[in-house]
């Protein structure tokens, strides 16, 4: 059936070009990450450091935009209307949680919800778009777009392979996602900003540095402490919210029906 109800179904653009763009995005991301981990440039402000900061910023952002351009034209209308809600939830709930003294972010709840309901491509697109729009209010999040895309992608992957069929599987999937996201985002924090954006996380990095770790090593260890817990809670919260949704609403998403994301819960 055509994605819209009034126009005949047309082939949406060039599938091969979109696949090539997605592949280029992934390659750019992995290439940059590998180069940074292997070379671990020492100086941050000595000429080489500025170049590394700009190249990391540009490469991570370009990879995220390539992934978005590859995915966006494929998304059905039900997913497109869900994404703005998810982005607004990320920002509104992120700000509410950030306003109380709890060391959690919960700023990817909307992204994970979209990943669970609409699949990994929609989740990745939501992550990138959310970062681009949030950067209007906080420009420092811009180079973390690729990390946000990975959160959505992993949420969709986890849902596809049954993480929502049992409530205890969702936080386990979140833990794994948190490890991967933390590892991917650490070079941006280290080489673009020279650390982290919060005092609490900065204190952890400083502690690891004083024990003799390199900057990238210290930031990666800090990310491995902060991110898995946060993502485990976000995945669990998103799963509980989806369980609370009416069945006719969740059944409206082709991804949920096709992969039996909710298992027996979906057939109630």
């Amino acid at each position: 059936m055509s994605p819209n109800l009034t126009l005949p179904e047309n082939a949406t653009g060039h599938p091969l070009r979109r696949r090539l763009m997605a592949a280029a995005g992934v390659l750019l991301l992995m290439g940059t990450y590998t180069a940074l981990v292997l070379t671990q440039p020492a100086g941050l402000i000595d000429g080489l450091g500025q170049g590394v900061a700009l190249a990391t910023f540009a490469a991570y952002l370009a990879a995220a935009i390539l992934l978005l351009a590859a995915v966006l034209p494929e998304l059905p209308v039900a997913t497109l209307t869900l994404i703005p809600v998810a982005l607004a939830l990320n920002i509104v709930l992120g700000q509410f949680v950030g306003s109380v003294m709890i060391p959690l972010y919960l700023d990817s709840l909307g992204t994970v919800l979209v990943g669970f309901l609409a699949g990994r491509r929609a989740g990745a697109a939501t992550g990138v778009l959310g970062t681009l729009i949030w950067s209007l209010f906080n420009p420092t999040v811009l180079p973390f777009a690729a990390g946000a895309a990975l959160v959505g992608f992993l949420a969709g992957t986890a849902a596809r392979f049954g993480a929502l069929r049992r409530p205890y599987l969702a936080p386990v999937a979140g833990l794994v996602a948190g490890v991967l996201v933390g590892v991917l985002s650490a070079p941006v924090a280290a080489f673009v900003f020279g650390g982290t954006s919060g005092v609490g996380t900065g204190a952890l990095v400083a502690a690891f540095r004083s024990m003799g770790d390199s900057l990238l090593g210290a930031v990666t260890k800090q990310a491995l402490i902060s991110d898995p817990g946060d993502k485990a809670i976000v995945f669990l919260l998103a799963a509980l919210l989806i369980y609370a949704l009416p069945g006719r609403l969740t059944a409206g998403f082709a991804f949920v029906r096709r992969y039996r994301v909710l298992g027996r819960r979906g057939s109630r």
Partner: peptide
Amino acid sequence: PAWGSQLLIH
């Protein structure tokens, strides 16, 4: 907070 973090780390 970003400056606080950079001051602590470096």
